[in-house]
Design a protein around this nucleic acid. Structure first.
Lengths: 112, 112
DNA sequence: GCAATTCGTTTCGCTTCCGTTTCAGTCCTT
DNA sequence: AAGGACTGAAACGGAAGCGAAACGAATTGC
């Protein structure tokens, strides 16, 4: 894959998302969402903040937003009640799955 | 390319952007930026709004933000002074170029 | 048992974004 | 020259984001 093809793919995927009225997530929010769904659990606020090199409030706020969209859910850790465990949801899994399919579809449409 | 690989690639690219402190553009803003740099000019507010299926103020505001970041520039169309022509900048071209290279790099790092 | 640490959230003032509506400037046709 | 059509920006109230700092609750260490 060459850079020009990569950029074109990225553009087509974003255009399809925007045109379809998908939630307008920021780069940070999308990174958090994909990390939750691709990296092995458990996921904590602190862990995500470290993985993305951002402050904890950034994670808290992103979880607020994506929680309202039902893309993720929060649960107190019963073993250490200071922790919050972030879990996947059915809706979120569906969203991520569709997103991945969309990338593949756009890749196939790409000119060689 | 399979969906799981596509998602992993997307995640790695976003993570590298976020960790490096790149501007936290939204999906819409990124789509606008890439469209300006990949589609042939001229680009107008109205044209971009139609291409992305969003309202004109969305484009105006995105141009405000990305203009402040020096990623794009605006110029009045001298032939039809109602139009504003959006042009690429050196900084924007560099940003997009690096972004494309980043995607290719992450693609190479991906497990087969 | 009590201070120190850790965790996630909340608060503060500020900026940016949203959709809708309104506006000023510029064509274009008559 | 006058009316309407069109373009992009500005105004509005509301929502959400930011970094930095402070917070309560839970755990750990001495």
């Amino acid at each position: 894959m060459r850079p020009s093809q990569a950029l074109r793919l990225w553009q087509q995927v974003l255009l399809s998302q925007v045109r379809d009225g998908a939630p307008d997530l920021t780069m940070r929010q999308t990174a958090i969402l994909l990390t939750i769904y691709l990296d092995p659990p458990p996921h904590t606020v602190r862990g995500l903040a470290a993985r993305l090199n951002v402050t904890k409030p950034v994670i808290t706020r992103a979880l607020d937003t994506m929680g309202a969209l039902k893309l993720v859910s929060r649960h107190r850790d019963e073993l250490d009640k200071r922790n919050v465990l972030i879990r996947r949801t059915v809706e979120g899994a569906l969203f991520v799955e569709r997103f991945g399919d969309g990338i593949v579809d756009r890749a196939h449409e790409l000119p060689i």
